[in-house]
Design a protein around this nucleic acid. Structure first.
Lengths: 342, 342
DNA sequence: CGTGGGAACTAGAGCGCTCTAGTATCGGCA
DNA sequence: TGCCGATACTAGAGCGCTCTAGTTCCCACG
């Protein structure tokens, strides 16, 4: 109540007047900057509360632009559940580092290009791209103007930092796990051109080789979605010769698709076929699913991304880094020891 | 090229200088406001292009605040696939209406409260809440300051517009469809306290009654996720008496969970059990899933939300509306005619 | 007693736009 | 010829903050 003026938003000016100090002092208090006596600080905060003052971020960012805006732009796939987890981690790390986060979503009708442009128009100081599909050339172009971190997608682009999971290592863990359970004939459902797919494929091959001479890796086309997994399952079932006894899928969703389809063809999981996913999305942990998978360390990914931004912006680091975060195997019930003989 | 000053961002001033006009004129051109000769307009645009000028949205919004900011805040669940579809539709409708969209995500560690506060600090002119979990009281409080549209979640809150699917009607369609296929004993997996659940339950009951005296509706606890569906499936299988021959699930994910579990218990879908979902998420259309479902008209929902905002903001409409968008049945292969007798 | 220095606070010039109130120019018409 | 009104353009005052360069005050210290 006591609106300072009819129907006009409360500004710092109003708070200052009420607290009996200057506008600058209110600014100091709200920014948490040094130079305000504790007693005054309390008085200002009280005044703000009484007037229900809401600081204006637009004005704040604009005012700051002479020095630093401390704003981070994040491009992500709207509705992409794993991106959600990463964003969560980014929020968590950005706050303590005193960075604001602005989201820009990619949807069917809103391209990554538009998403990026919007963020640049907001004068973000750095860009975090989640699983970006932008061509490396384009990223390089962007990186000239503003620090760019490619999350989840490895790119070799000058000036573009990469923060990603050790995809190859993840697959190595998956295959090793299956190896220990006695599996030797293992299929990999490939991710094609998707972020991380090449690395995972490489990890798969190396790990199978390491399993010994009797081990054999079979590669099938997979993909991002349950549908891709379902298609791969049909291929798997139609394979000539002895059927692989285990499968590593490009990701959890793909794994879910495989399990669904093979089960409907009378193949039991894990008795007849062991399945390993990648990501550890929420569904993987559901009791009726209980998918063994390679968990990406989302918190570490988010923290590393922020760390790169700080290194460049706050510490003046000019080097281009490729930060690789180790994943962990989460053994659940979609994998089992291979029964030799019936 | 020709950077007007070392290492300083290009501003309107620079463009104006290069085009040989005033800053105001550049502003006119970029806002698409009337009052610029075609020839000058071209000259300004050319100058902007040459300097690679990026308008600053923060400054623009701030400058506008004397009149209108034309900015819409959207609160959504990060990683919630259906929200992604709706956001897409919102983007599509907001553009032509000349509104900017600012997203604010809700995650495990970022509450809806924080999301809303952030948007208010951006001085959004209206708030669109997707499947909000805010208490009605809180919404009313917000609606005093700024127009609030609750999308997907019906709330009876003074001053809060609601835009939602005809949930009851959707379930009526589902039950009618099953009725036509000969089903009389039908289960409904309830959504508990989730957005739209009460309406769907009501629709289910009415529709079953309409099916005639021999029809019977069975209600089981369901939920939002596959896991909830899986749990419900177990309950369904353990039900005493003749088993329902059809199920309507609270949503598609829940339906997927049911199908997964019942199939593993040897129950065939659709031969032994017909299943109907709700939403029509992408997965429902996958070939190996082919889920019959009630499709929510996302485009219409988005358009209606924007329409409400325009009505209040651009047309001064003061009434509180409850906009109900009709859904449509998408018949796929998870439902089939009931075989009477073996 | 003077003085140096730090803490607490303020004045005011930006930040990059928008937009109102104006000026200049010109064609058309009585 | 003079005047009107439309069109094209500009000046300059905001918008609500930030932040530098002060000013004031007080206390410790020589």
């Amino acid at each position: 109540m006591l609106a300072p003026m009819a129907n006009r938003a409360v500004t710092m000016e109003d708070v200052a007047a009420r607290a009996g100090v200057s506008r600058a002092l209110v600014s100091i208090v709200f920014r948490g900057a040094p130079g305000a006596a504790e007693s005054t600080r309390q008085r200002v905060l009280a005044a703000a509360r009484e007037l229900d003052y809401q600081p204006d971020t637009r004005a704040s960012r604009l005012g700051r632009s002479r020095t630093r805006t401390r704003t981070l732009g994040v491009v992500f796939g709207v509705g992409h559940d794993f991106h959600g987890d990463v964003i969560d981690a980014i929020y968590a790390s950005a706050g303590p580092a005193d960075y604001e986060v602005v989201l820009s979503g990619v949807t069917r009708h809103r391209s990554e290009d538009v998403a990026v442009r919007t963020l640049l128009a907001e004068k973000c100081e750095a860009l975090l791209l989640l699983g970006s599909g932008l061509p490396a050339k384009e990223m390089v172009r962007l990186a000239v103007t503003v620090p760019v971190v490619s999350l989840l997608r490895p790119v070799r682009a000058a000036g573009v930092d990469v923060v990603r999971t050790d995809d190859a290592g993840g697959l190595a863990q998956a295959v090793a796990h299956l190896g220990e359970l006695g599996h030797r004939r293992i299929a990999h459902l490939d991710g094609g051109r998707n972020a991380g797919a090449a690395e995972r494929r490489r990890g798969f091959r190396t790990a199978v080789r390491r399993l010994g001479v009797e081990a054999e890796g079979v590669e099938l086309a997979g993909g991002l979605t349950e549908e891709d997994g379902a298609a791969a399952a049909l291929e798997l079932l139609a394979l000539p010769g002895p059927r692989p006894t285990a499968v590593t899928a490009f990701n959890d969703r793909c794994a879910l698709g495989v399990m669904d389809v093979v089960r409907r063809h009378g193949v039991r999981v894990p008795e007849d076929l062991s399945v390993v996913g990648f990501d550890d999305i929420e569904q993987a942990a559901y009791r009726h699913v209980s998918l063994t998978t390679i968990r990406q360390d989302v918190e570490a990914l988010g923290a590393a991304a922020i760390e790169r931004v700080r290194a460049r912006l706050d510490a003046g680091d000019e080097s281009t880094r490729d930060v690789v975060v180790p994943p962990t195997l989460v053994a659940r019930e979609s994998t089992a020891r291979l029964d030799i003989g019936p």
